[in-house]
Design a protein around this nucleic acid. Structure first.
Length: 802
RNA sequence: GCCCGGGUGGUGGAAUGGUAGACACGCAGGACUUAAAAUCCUGUCUCAGCAAUGGGGUGAGGGUUCGAGUCCCUCCUCGGGCACCA
């Protein structure tokens, strides 16, 4: 009798063996086996350390990698740290401890945790984004974009917290409130760096060849927000200028009774009449002061003022007034809209309030959806009325006709618009990659030459915000004052740092090339290893990281650095783990640490429990109630595999059936049902004699899910090398054919019994036997069988008419 | 408001249109033990019944089908995303 399985001892032992044998170091040059790039979103080294959520996604990701490895792939499974960012800096502001120090401590602790997991990570490929040999290349990526016109600098309103007297990143201004002090965030104008992601809007809508969740794709598509419409020029009465509007409903042009400009629109000042000047200026001031919360408050009453100016409707020559109102957004379309109150809810509300005319030009085709313009706008397509020569036309056709008509006069054109806005990457923050730009009084804005990278983060910094909205980097004179790379004269550095999403939007390109000192990556290596074959991470990154990474990758592709057109071939989101229904977070104090469970039960039990909780993509609420079930299962598995019993032989059929089921389940990432079928298997063979070959296959099946346990048993069963150097078992189809099968018997769709028949029985034979069953006779008595349904191997249904 | 997902025993959950509740937790009873732990066995959707068996049952209501947790329509509800984008 073998002593009980001791996870503490075994797990330590096998991790040592793996490390000593470099089992998880990937030979990136190997061309014999097909490559498989298995990636998880790298963690942020937070003070919370690794929590259950990390385990919930990393453990199955590791199981997946191990499975692919046993299937014969050359698996590359790297890990690293996304280590720049706000929490470390906020912590420094509070405590004075340098972010480099906290980051280092957190990484050291988390590396220990990650290693205790026993996952097959190739630690030699590790990247840490705050290290100079990484951010050097982040700066390099920036320069490539800069050189190719994908980066620009522009005056822009940014989030400003009056409480902390500092600029905030969008992510810090959640719901319009400062994450640190809960003040309402306002706007402040600053010159900012932008990446022109908009120029890739159309390319980013192409998902061909990607195996991504539908949901994520839809979210991105929504975010990019492509819309097809027309741009129309309206002449301003008494000026030689015109105003261009964007509309998707050019068919309603006859119904345009006024025009609205965003208060920030550049023409507002020029067209406003003297009489209206004061009101307009007051309104603009008020708008600027309004916080995001106020401006976007639900059901907020629309406000605006008349400019005193008019435009001419190009279609019917009508003169219509120009208003300004903050319900029109300056950054979308042209910042100006033609208002058609009869057929747009917002315009309708505005027109009602300011007593502007409402002119009906679309009539419903369907009588049931009869419109009543005195009560509400009718916003659907219909037939044109009151529209001159276009009357009677359907909306869709009218859109084409009217655009063509005006196009001939040079007054309109078809236009595609996107909601996606350019990516603001400036951060007035310390703990990030410095933007490699120098300002020279002679030469102006100059890019730091690649050979001078990295632009190192200084350490002599004052973290406390001064309230001037400037980056803490300004407090380091040795950093700020430099020489111009061009004229060698005195110059100053850009003191903003980059959004950490820039760092994380290319890290997957660095992993396979992390050893390169003189280049960020090598085309040859990337051509082989990209795209990432499997990318696992949270769905909250759908419109941020996953969009940015696709964009940077595509840009790098267009610049000739990567062959693959997309970075992530297959994407899977793990579900979220909550605690009592709430998201785990330090501020709520409900973060559950995996450490105590790993210590008590071992990594294998803990990870299997997480996988057994439910479907991987579903997530769930954390509780440890059922973990003893997995512990019992592991002990039982160990006992059955390592103990010899006497008596009945176990049939190989159960092993083969389990191979089929587990393979299918893992393929579908249904780890929970893979585990339950292994439980069924072990329950079925627990008191029987099992052949050594069957045992070996069983161990291989559990290996991706419980790697340490599998190694221990594998060695016990005579395995000389690691079980992960062996191949995934295949089932013998002949073995899983049953001699006898159970068939359900229904009468009128109601179950009335089951019947055990030889597998090859004919329909006739089965039906005859069914009809002789006592309980069936009872239920068909007095009626007439009008239909007999037999689904082979499954069910018989007799339809009886009484 | 719009776009996605969900809603199944006491609990986590399972079910290519074909025996609803696999597997596991918990609970109850039993075996082993001086006792406990561990382990093993039995039961466990609900109602009636000793049982055989029968009635009901997958958020609510309709529909399609020989047959619906699964497909369709309407609604309720929970979660996520977007939200004045003209």
């Amino acid at each position: 009798m073998i002593p009980y399985y001791n996870p503490e001892k075994s797990e330590k032992k096998w991790r040592k063996v793996w490390e000593a044998n470099k089992l998880y170091k990937t030979n990136l040059e190997d061309q014999k086996r097909p490559k498989y790039y298995n990636l998880v979103m790298f963690p942020y080294p937070s003070g919370d350390k690794l929590h259950i959520g990390h385990w919930y996604s990393y453990a199955p990701a590791d199981s997946w990698g191990r499975y692919m490895r046993m299937k014969g792939f050359n698996v590359f499974q790297p890990i690293g740290f996304d280590s720049f960012g706000l929490p470390a800096e906020n912590y420094a502001i509070k405590t004075g401890i340098h972010p480099a120090k906290t980051t280092k401590t957190n990484i050291a602790y988390m590396e220990k945790q990650l290693k205790a997991m026993g996952a097959g990570w190739d630690w030699d490929a590790e990247v840490v984004t705050n290290e100079p040999d990484y951010y050097k290349w982040t700066q390099w990526v920036f320069l490539q974009l800069y050189k190719n016109g994908l980066v620009y600098r522009k005056l822009s309103p940014v989030n400003w917290c009056p409480g902390c007297k500092t600029v905030l990143a969008n992510e810090q201004a959640q719901d319009g409130l400062c994450e640190r002090c809960d003040s309402e965030v306002t706007k402040k104008d600053l010159t900012q760096w932008f990446i022109n992601i908009r120029s890739y809007a159309q390319k980013l809508l192409d998902y061909e060849g990607l195996d991504w969740p539908e949901k994520t794709r839809l979210m991105q598509e929504n975010w990019i927000g492509r819309s097809e419409g027309s741009e129309i020029d309206f002449d301003i009465v008494g000026h030689d200028k015109k105003i261009t509007v964007y509309t998707t409903r050019i068919d309603t042009l006859y119904g345009a009774t006024y025009m609205v400009l965003a208060p920030e629109h550049e023409l507002v000042e020029k067209i406003t009449t003297i009489k209206n000047k004061k009101a307009v200026e007051d309104y603009m001031k008020k708008t600027r002061k309004a916080t995001d919360i106020e401006r976007s408050a639900e059901g907020r009453e629309k406000t605006g003022v008349f400019t005193g100016a008019y435009v001419t409707n190009p279609l019917n020559g009508a003169q219509i007034p120009i208003w300004i109102a903050d319900y029109v957004l300056v950054h979308y379309g042209t910042g100006a809209v033609m208002a058609v109150p009869a057929h747009d809810e917002r315009d309708y509300a505005f027109a009602k309030k300011y007593k502007l005319p409402i002119k009906e030009v679309i009539s419903p085709i369907n009588y049931e959806t009869k419109s009543n313009i005195s009560k509400a706008a009718f916003c659907e397509d219909g037939k044109l009325i009151n529209s001159g020569e276009f009357g009677g036309t359907d909306s869709a056709q009218a859109r084409i006709d009217i655009t063509r008509f005006l196009e001939k006069k040079g007054l309109a054109k078809l236009k595609v618009n996107y909601r996606l806005r350019d990516w603001l990457i400036s951060r007035q923050r310390y703990w990030g990659a410095p933007i490699p730009i120098v300002y020279c009084p002679e030469c102006g804005e100059v890019a730091v030459p690649e050979k001078d990278l990295p632009v190192k983060l200084p350490t002599d910094i004052e973290f406390q915000p001064k309230g001037d909205g400037k980056s803490p980097l300004n407090t380091s004179s040795s950093f700020v004052n430099t020489k111009c790379p061009k004229c060698k004269g005195p110059a100053t550095r850009e003191t903003d740092t980059m959004d950490t999403f820039v760092c994380s939007s290319w890290y997957f390109l660095r992993y396979p090339c992390s050893q390169l000192a003189k280049k960020p990556f090598e085309e040859k290596t990337l051509s082989h290893w990209l795209p990432v074959d499997m990318y696992i991470g949270g769905p909250e990154h759908a419109c941020m990281h996953l969009l940015y990474a696709r964009f940077i990758h595509k840009a790098m592709h267009d610049l000739g650095f990567v062959k693959a057109g997309e970075p992530f071939k297959r994407l899977v989101h793990q579900g979220m783990i909550t605690k009592n229904g709430a998201k785990m977070s330090k501020s709520k104090g409900n973060v559950v640490s995996p450490d105590e469970f790993v210590k008590k039960y071992g990594s294998d039990v803990f990870r299997m429990y997480l996988m057994f909780m439910g479907p991987f993509t579903q997530g769930g609420d954390w509780n440890d109630k059922g973990i003893t079930g997995i512990k019992r299962f592991v002990d039982k598995f160990w006992r059955v595999m390592t103990t010899e019993v006497e008596g009945e032989r176990a049939s190989s059929a159960i092993i083969h059936k389990t191979i089929k089921k587990v393979t299918e389940d893992i393929e579908a990432m249904h780890f929970n049902t893979a585990i339950s079928s292994l439980m069924e298997m072990i329950n079925a063979i627990s008191d029987k004699v099992v052949s050594i070959d069957d045992k070996r296959m069983a161990v291989k099946l559990i290996a991706p899910l419980a790697p340490h346990l599998a190694e221990e048993i594998w060695a016990h069963l005579g395995g000389k090398k690691s079980v992960f150097e062996d191949s995934w078992p295949t089932y013998d189809p002949k073995q899983i054919v049953e001699d006898e099968i159970t068939i359900a018997v229904q009468v009128n769709g109601k179950l009335r019994g089951t019947i055990l028949v030889p597998n090859n029985s004919s329909k006739e034979k089965i039906l005859a036997e069914v009809k002789s069953m006592e309980n069936i006779q009872k239920h068909i008595a007095g009626g007439q069988i009008v239909k007999e349904i037999y689904v082979p191997g499954k069910i018989v249904n007799l339809v009886v008419k009484m």
